[in-house]
Design a protein around this nucleic acid. Structure first.
Length: 550
RNA sequence: GUUUCGGUAGCUCAGUUGGAUAGAGCAACGGCCUUCUAAGCCGUCGGUCGGGGGUUCGAAUCCCUCCCGGAAUGCCA
């Protein structure tokens, strides 16, 4: 029996007592909590307070009655205290808690693997930046959060497809082609102006130079629009993939918007919407009746000039995702797109499925600060600090950890001067250092001829609050995974990592690990081995490395 | 105006399915390396949880209201 099972048993026992006492009410849920203060036990229950009204008795009395009916031994409880105003505090026998060390060492990386999503297939779409320039630091948040979320969901037992929607059709790409053409011609000293909505970033100039090297002046004489378009998209997309890969973000599916046109999916979806009478014509445009499905107003899907809005292929795209039989579609979008959710959900309702199959996670924007001022990021203006720059200058680990730390819906400030210079302030090193220290201890122990052996230990030599605290946190790893996965909150995992590292550092400062007592040393090494397993696994879930030396 | 996300320590942020004395990192201050990694440990300082009402044994957390900031409110994407 592990600790999670034990807490369930304690809850059951409380429920049983309530029944015997004649108080039981199934609408009042029995659940244990973990008190912040160690003196309040390993677990605590507020159940007596919640039954006070129903039982018409003082909570403290109810608590006493419940406790009287509990069998301490079979529940591995050392003591049970009743405290004002009616909390019940449970102290588990230490040797039971230590059992988790053996479990972890036996299971290795499998420890914490859950099977929550047995019948679920999730599709998670994130980043999906247009291939019209370099990824900038603002995009990194989406990449880091989305990827971490996927890894955590997989650990929790969900089948996950990571997907990137490539906007390789439409107006933005048109502007890219024109921008590239203009830059190319400028290289021949032609007085060509950039298009009004053009992309002014330096990467477009570099690309134009590359084209010039390859084809020389060919497109001064012949029409090059299609060439610039496809060349630009494929080069920029390749760059984008590379940047993401270096950021340790890999996608399973790169879904091309153009393919929706090539395979007539957009046209078919449009026909379907018309047939079902979900559309009408007004002012020369075709509108979709999204307001009938919860949107604040109807939306144009075919403009009066005959072209589509962004929404049109996106409906077709989501229809396609639905047809691929996922049980859940998660879109991770930037905060500037939140007004888009209602129309998308409405459209999904129309193409046949319940809109709640789509879940949209909104990622608030990052405000980048440099030299004490806000830096406005914009691809069009070309003013941007690229992800590539940051990877090269600071490294992947600090950035990924930093973004994973923040809850998705918080508006955050990123001080670049701080991020670039004072990298030691990033808590990632605190966690990584814990792991490096452990590996150093193994090396030291080995030198003295003591090796960690993966056998069941009795842990009769382990004592002290710091030790118990560390073991306790190790036992909570599966809870942390579940919480982070079901609430879509990757930052719960960095909170957990920080707690674990802190417990370790504190334990380390308090306890001499390698001593002349071989049995005690081996027991401590077993604890450290369990700690490093969890540290490395949890770090891997947010895409951060775990160096053995620092 | 409407929708939406925020407002918690000097700064950046946790904590928000109601729980016990509101936390962490950084900054500031004071201790700890002749024994396992000082990227560390131990301690001190620091708060009208935006304001005001309400709900109850109990509210940062739930409800109402007001104030402040970001974002959205396109036949842009």
């Amino acid at each position: 029996m592990n600790i999670q099972e034990l807490t369930v048993n304690i809850e059951k026992a409380i429920k049983h007592s309530l029944k015997e006492l004649g108080y039981y009410d199934e609408s009042i849920e029995v659940s244990l909590e973990q008190p912040k203060d160690k003196s309040h036990g390993d677990y605590a229950s507020n159940i007596a307070m919640r039954y006070a009204k129903k039982a018409r008795k003082a909570p403290i009395k109810i608590a006493e009655e419940i406790v009287e009916k509990l069998d301490k031994e079979s529940l591995y409880l050392e003591t049970i205290n009743v405290v004002n105003p009616g909390f019940i505090n449970f102290f588990i026998v230490p040797s039971f808690i230590f059992g988790v060390i053996n479990d972890i060492n036996k299971q290795g990386k499998q420890y914490g693997q859950l099977s929550l999503g047995k019948n679920d297939r999730y599709n998670i779409e994130f980043v999906s930046v247009n291939p019209t320039g370099s990824l900038h630091i603002g995009h990194a948040r989406g990449a880091a959060s989305g990827d971490s979320m996927c890894r955590i969901l997989q650990k929790a037992g969900y089948e996950v497809t990571k997907e990137y929607y490539v906007n390789d059709a439409g107006n933005q790409i048109h502007n890219l082609a024109l921008s590239l053409e203009a830059r190319y011609k400028q290289l021949f000293d032609l007085d060509v102006l950039m298009p009004e909505d053009g992309y002014n970033g330096p990467e477009i100039i570099k690309l134009a130079e590359k084209i010039k090297r390859e084809v020389n002046d060919r497109y001064l004489h012949e029409e090059g629009y299609h060439f610039f378009k496809s060349y630009g998209v494929s080069e920029l997309l390749a760059q984008l993939k590379q940047d993401l890969a270096d950021f340790r973000v890999e996608f399973d599916v790169w879904f091309s918007e153009q393919s929706l046109y090539d395979e007539q999916i957009v046209q078919k979806t449009l026909d379907y919407l018309k047939e079902q009478n979900y559309t009408y014509e007004q002012d020369g445009a075709i509108w979709l009746k999204t307001s009938e499905y919860g949107d604040e107003k109807d939306r144009v899907i075919v403009k009066s000039d005959g072209t589509y809005t962004y929404l049109t292929p996106d409906i077709a795209y989501h229809k396609n995702k639905l047809d691929r039989n996922y049980t859940k579609l998660i879109d991770i979008l930037g905060g500037d797109h939140h007004g888009y959710i209602d129309r998308l959900k409405a459209a999904i309702e129309m193409v046949g499925k319940q809109s709640n199959i789509l879940e949209v996670e909104i990622l608030q924007m990052v405000k980048v600060i440099q030299n004490g001022e806000e830096v406005k990021m914009s691809k069009r203006s070309g003013r941007a600090i690229t992800l590539r720059d940051i990877i090269d200058e600071v490294g992947v680990d600090p950035i990924r950890y930093f973004f994973a730390m923040r809850s998705l819906n918080t508006h955050m400030d990123l001080d670049l001067d701080l991020a670039l210079k004072q990298t030691n302030e990033n808590p990632v090193y605190y966690v990584q250092y814990a792991n490096a220290r452990i590996h150093s201890l193994f090396t030291q122990a080995e030198k003295k001829g003591i090796n960690f052996t993966n056998e069941d230990h009795k842990f009769t030599h382990l004592t002290g609050d710091k030790t118990i605290q560390l073991v306790h946190i190790l036992s909570q790893y599966p809870d942390a995974i579940e919480l982070a996965a079901t609430n879509r909150t990757p930052h719960k995992l960095t909170n957990y990592l920080n707690q674990l590292a802190s417990a370790f550092h504190s334990f380390y400062g308090d306890t001499q690990i390698i001593t002349d007592d071989i049995v005690a040393t081996k027991e401590k090494l077993a604890l450290l081995n369990a700690t490093t397993i969890v540290l490395e696994d949890a770090l891997s879930l947010i895409g951060v490395s775990a160096p053995k030396k620092m």
